[in-house]
C-alpha cells in the first residue's frame, strides 16, 4: 500500500511572469505586423492601381466595353486600401510603441526564466525592436 503523499501546491509568481512575457511577445508581434502594414497598405494601393492601369493599357481599353464601371471599381478598391493605410498611419507611433515595449518586456521576462529556454521568442523580440526602430526612422524620414 502506497503512503499518501500530498502533492505540494506548486505554481508561483515566476510562472505568472513568464505568462506575462509570452503575452507581451504576442502583442509585440501583432503590433509590429500592423506597423509594417502601414507601409504595406500604401504599397498595396499602389500595386492595385498599377495593375489596374496596366490592364487597361494591355487590353487597349477594351476592358471598358466588358466592364463599363471598371474605373470606378478600381478606384473603390484603392480607396479602401488607402483608408486602411491612413488609419494605420495615424496610429503608427502607438503601434510602434506597443511593439517595442512588448518586445522589451518579453525579452526581459523570458530571459529571466531559468526553467525553460525561449530562444525563438528572444531572437524574434530582438528582431522586432530593431525592425520597428528602422520603421520609425523611415516614418519620420518620410514625414520630413
Amino acid at each position: 500500500m502506497q503512503k499518501e503523499v500530498s502533492v505540494p501546491a506548486a505554481g508561483s509568481g515566476n510562472t505568472f511572469l513568464v505568462r506575462i512575457g509570452k503575452i507581451a511577445f504576442n502583442l509585440s508581434v501583432v503590433c509590429a505586423a500592423l506597423c509594417f502594414c502601414t507601409f504595406a497598405s500604401f504599397m498595396t494601393m499602389a500595386i492595385v492601381l498599377l495593375f489596374g492601369f496596366v490592364f487597361i493599357i494591355l487590353s487597349f481599353g477594351t476592358v471598358f466595353g466588358f466592364i463599363p464601371d471598371y474605373f470606378s471599381r478600381l478606384l473603390n478598391v484603392a480607396e479602401i486600401t488607402g483608408q486602411v493605410g491612413n488609419f494605420l498611419l495615424q496610429h503608427f507611433m502607438l503601434l510602434a510603441g506597443i511593439a517595442i515595449g512588448g518586445a522589451v518586456v518579453a525579452f526581459v521576462l523570458l530571459l529571466l526564466d531559468k526553467q525553460h529556454k525561449h530562444v525563438a521568442r528572444l531572437v524574434v523580440s530582438g528582431c522586432i525592436v530593431a525592425l520597428v526602430i528602422i520603421g520609425i526612422i523611415v516614418f519620420f524620414g518620410g514625414a520630413a
Binding site: V7, A9, G11, I20
Partner: peptide, 23 residues
C-alpha cells in the same frame, strides 16, 4: 512532481490579470 499554473493559490487572480493584459 511538476508545477501547474492552475494549482496556484491565487490562480484566479493570475488568470484575471493575464486575461485583461492579453486583451
Amino acid at each position: 512532481t511538476r508545477e501547474l499554473e492552475l494549482r496556484a493559490k491565487l490562480w484566479w487572480l493570475y488568470a484575471i490579470l493575464s486575461f485583461l493584459v492579453s486583451i
